[in-house]
Design a protein around this nucleic acid. Sequence first.
DNA 1: TGCAATAGGGAATAATTTATCCCTATGCGA
DNA 2: TCGCATAGGGATAAATTATTCCCTATTGCA
Lengths: 123, 123
Amino acid sequence: MYERKIPLYLNCGLDLIGEVLYGKWKIRLLWFIHEGIQRPSELHRKIADASRRVLNIQLKELEEHELVSKIIYPQVPPKVEYSLTEFGKTLIPVISVLGHWGDKNQERLRDVILRSSKNIPVG
Amino acid sequence: MYERKIPLYLNCGLDLIGEVLYGKWKIRLLWFIHEGIQRPSELHRKIADASRRVLNIQLKELEEHELVSKIIYPQVPPKVEYSLTEFGKTLIPVISVLGHWGDKNQERLRDVILRSSKNIPVG
DNA sequence: TGCAATAGGGAATAATTTATCCCTATGCGA
DNA sequence: TCGCATAGGGATAAATTATTCCCTATTGCA
């Protein structure tokens, strides 16, 4: 397992929420699970850009952080279902706020992000 | 300059806000600037854990994303001041929501994060 | 039998992000 | 003159995160 070399910063609320939400696909995972997409294979299909591997790893972290819970049905072929814990559900309004801000400012954001990524000076 | 090899995902609002807020120190920078700490040297002192270099880079990205604006006073020794743009100010309530959730759940978060980072199974 | 679907781990590598170190430049005060 | 403060860039190394590829196992279906 990977061992951190730079310590975590857990001083304030912003550090803490950052720690559990930081990860390329985590917010999306939480959101899709919230929307009822609960089986790993479905999540993989929905988030096709991500490698299966990372999704598994990030799901496990979400579980360790008690944001989602996992039920393994003793069947073959295997069946697994994720759902939000009560704690995880409290994050949904927070994620909503993020999403709304992004949606509301879509055009401008797309514009500045693309311009910045191409390193075009601000006109 | 670094050239991306994996394309950006700019589909929904969550992707977009992620793109501008992703970066180890960006939220903190926005917050401190919001609180009136505006000169680079002050920001460096406040965020002492970060290397000066990255702060400069992330400030420049925030500027390219039109969240902060920069005034360079033609003086020696140089004087520079950052402030939030109108657009940047609209992010403050969003960051507040993040911070509040983190503050409210401080203890639990600290607990699960530390446990997870030490790879101790959920008891 | 051969292949798809299911869930997921190991190892190695690539991509990306941060950190470290050193350099420029100027005026002020000891 | 020496050293500090100011702001910030270049090159390179280190740390972190994500991707790719390959492997396990079982049942059902053609």
